[in-house]
C-alpha cells in the first residue's frame, strides 16, 4: 500500500470515526440531546427536507445568488488584476488596501448595501461579490508576477502576437495561482451570501437556518446546516479535483 493511499484511508477513517463518536456521544446523552442532533438524524432530516418544495426554492435562491456573485467576482477580479498588473504605481498605492481588506468584517457594510440596492437578492449578490473579488484580484496579480521572464522572452522570440502570448504562454504559467483564486472566490462568495441571509435577509438557506433556530426547530436547522456544509465541501473538492487533473495534463504535455 503506498503512502498516499494510506493517508487517504486515514482521512476517511478519522472522518467516519468523528461522526461515529458524535453519534455515540449524542445517543448516550454525553452531549445534551437538545443541543446537538445525532448525525444519523441530521442526515435523515436533510434527505426529508430536500424533497419539500419550500426548501428546494431556498436552495435554488441561494445557489443562484452565489453563482452570480462568484462568476462576477472571478471575471471582474481577473480583469482588474490584469489591468492593475500593467500599472505598477497604482498597484503599489492600492496594495495596503488589499492587504487589510480581509481584516474588515465585511458584514458591517450590509446595511449600506441594503440601502443602496433594496431588499432581495441584489445586496446579497453584492456582499458575496465583495467577499470574493479581492481573492481573485490578488491571485491574478500573484499569478502574473510568477510568470518567468524567460517565457515572455521565448514568446517574443517566436514572434507571438499579444493575444497568442497571453493564451499560449502567460495564462498557462499563471494558472496555478488563478485556480487558487477561483477556489477561494467560490468559498468566500458562499460564506458571504449565507452569512448575509443568516443575519439580515428574509430568504434563502441562511435565513431558513436562522428561522429554524429561532423557532426551536432543531431538526430542520441541523438538516439544512448539514446540507450547506456538504455543499461547500463538495464544491470545493470538485474544484480541487479538476485543478489537479489540469495540472497532471500539463505535466504530461
Amino acid at each position: 500500500m503506498t503512502r498516499s493511499t494510506r493517508i487517504l484511508r486515514a482521512r476517511w477513517g478519522v472522518s467516519l470515526g468523528l461522526i461515529v463518536l458524535l453519534e455515540v456521544a449524542c445517543r448516550t446523552g454525553l452531549v445534551p440531546p437538545l443541543a446537538v442532533l445525532p448525525p444519523s438524524e441530521m442526515a435523515a432530516a436533510m434527505v426529508e427536507l430536500l424533497t419539500t418544495e419550500e426548501v428546494l426554492a431556498n436552495v435554488a435562491a441561494t445557489f443562484s445568488t452565489v453563482a452570480v456573485a462568484f462568476l462576477g467576482a472571478v471575471l471582474i477580479g481577473f480583469a482588474v488584476g490584469v489591468a492593475l498588473h500593467g500599472i505598477p504605481r497604482l498597484r503599489r498605492a492600492i496594495d495596503p488596501l488589499l492587504a487589510s481588506y480581509y481584516s474588515v468584517p465585511i458584514f458591517v457594510f450590509y446595511p449600506l448595501l441594503v440601502a443602496l440596492f433594496g431588499l432581495g437578492a441584489l445586496p446579497l449578490i453584492a456582499i458575496g461579490f465583495l467577499a470574493a473579488l479581492p481573492a481573485m484580484l490578488i491571485a491574478t496579480l500573484l499569478g502574473l508576477d510568477r510568470v518567468p521572464p524567460v517565457l515572455r522572452r521565448v514568446a517574443r522570440m517566436h514572434r507571438l502576437g499579444p493575444a497568442r502570448t497571453a493564451a499560449l504562454v502567460i495564462l498557462p504559467a499563471a494558472l496555478p495561482n488563478l485556480f487558487q483564486g477561483i477556489k477561494l472566490s467560490l468559498a468566500y462568495a458562499f460564506i458571504g451570501v449565507i452569512a448575509g441571509e443568516f443575519i439580515l435577509s428574509g430568504g434563502g438557506l441562511g435565513y431558513a437556518i436562522a428561522y429554524a433556530y429561532e423557532s426551536f426547530d432543531n431538526r430542520t436547522m441541523y438538516g439544512l446546516m448539514l446540507f450547506v456544509l456538504l455543499s461547500a465541501v463538495v464544491s470545493n473538492t470538485l474544484l480541487s479535483a479538476w485543478e489537479s487533473r489540469l495540472q497532471r495534463r500539463r505535466g504530461r504535455g
Binding site: A10, S15, P32, A35, I191, L224
Partner: peptide, 28 residues
C-alpha cells in the same frame, strides 16, 4: 503522517460557511 492526514481536512473546514454553526454554539 498526522499532518498530511489533517491538512486538507482543515483547509476544507476553512472554506465552509461557519456562520451556520452559530446556532450550535448558542445551543451548547
Amino acid at each position: 503522517f498526522a499532518g498530511d492526514v489533517a491538512e486538507p481536512m482543515l483547509a476544507s473546514l476553512y472554506t465552509i460557511p461557519k456562520v451556520t454553526l452559530y446556532p450550535v454554539m448558542l445551543l451548547l
